Simulated scan of single mutants.
Amino acid sequence: MPSIDIRHPHSLAPAKARKAVEDVAKKLAERFDIQYEWDGDVLNFARSGVDGKIAVSPEHLRVTAQLGFLLGAMKGPIEAEIRRVLEEKFK
C-alpha cells in the first residue's frame, strides 16, 4: 500500500499551527468528503482510499497517510499538493 510521510518545519505558535491545520482539514472535508477528528495534537483523517494523520509539534508538522490502490497511482501529485499547501500555510 503506497504511503506518504512528510515533515514540514514551522515557526507558528502551537495554537496558530493547530488552527491552520484545522482550516486545511475543513477544506478537505468540503472538497473530498474526508472525515477528521483531533486526538490531542494529532488530527486523524480518513475516507475511502486514504487513512492518515497530521501531527502538530512545536517545531514541525508530520503528515502521514496510507493510500489505497486507486489513490496510490496518484501518490506523486497528491504529495506535491500537500507540500504546496504546507508551504502556503506554514511559512
Score class of each variant (00 low, 15 high):
9 P>D: 02
40 G>V: 08
19 K>V: 09
84 R>Q: 10
47 R>V: 03
39 D>L: 05
49 G>P: 08
13 A>Q: 13
3 S>V: 05
29 A>N: 08
23 D>A: 14
23 D>H: 02
36 Y>R: 07
56 V>H: 02
22 E>A: 14
2 P>M: 06
8 H>F: 15
90 F>A: 06
30 E>C: 00
82 I>N: 00
20 A>S: 11
23 D>I: 09
41 D>F: 09
34 I>Y: 12
90 F>M: 04
29 A>C: 06
39 D>H: 10
86 L>H: 05
28 L>N: 01
66 Q>D: 12
45 F>L: 09
41 D>R: 05
63 V>D: 03
13 A>H: 08
46 A>F: 10
78 I>M: 04
32 F>V: 03
35 Q>T: 15
12 L>P: 02
52 G>V: 11
91 K>T: 13
17 A>S: 11
79 E>P: 10
87 E>T: 13
16 K>I: 07
77 P>W: 08
88 E>N: 07
86 L>F: 07
71 L>Y: 02
7 R>E: 13
6 I>F: 04
81 E>L: 12
8 H>E: 05
63 V>P: 00
87 E>H: 11
36 Y>I: 12
42 V>M: 04
89 K>R: 15
45 F>K: 00
3 S>R: 09
81 E>M: 09
7 R>W: 01
37 E>S: 12
16 K>M: 06
38 W>M: 05
66 Q>G: 10
59 E>K: 14
40 G>D: 06
61 L>E: 03
37 E>L: 01
77 P>D: 03
4 I>A: 05
62 R>I: 08
48 S>A: 12
9 P>M: 06
23 D>N: 08
27 K>L: 15
16 K>V: 09
19 K>Q: 14
8 H>V: 07
10 H>F: 09
14 P>W: 03
43 L>V: 13
48 S>D: 10
66 Q>S: 12
77 P>K: 07
9 P>F: 12
64 T>G: 04
1 M>E: 04
62 R>C: 05
13 A>F: 02
68 G>P: 05
88 E>C: 01
8 H>D: 04
85 V>L: 12
50 V>R: 02
53 K>W: 13
48 S>W: 13
8 H>W: 15
40 G>S: 03
9 P>C: 12
70 L>R: 01
76 G>F: 06
27 K>F: 10
36 Y>Q: 09
78 I>H: 01
53 K>N: 11
80 A>L: 07
86 L>N: 08
80 A>V: 02
3 S>A: 11
31 R>T: 08
31 R>V: 07
79 E>V: 12
77 P>I: 05
7 R>V: 13
3 S>P: 02
64 T>D: 04
40 G>N: 06
43 L>R: 01
88 E>K: 13
66 Q>E: 15
55 A>P: 00
11 S>C: 11
42 V>E: 00
89 K>A: 08
58 P>H: 03
44 N>K: 15
47 R>G: 03
29 A>Q: 06
4 I>D: 02
10 H>D: 03
86 L>K: 06
53 K>G: 05
10 H>L: 13
39 D>F: 03
65 A>V: 12
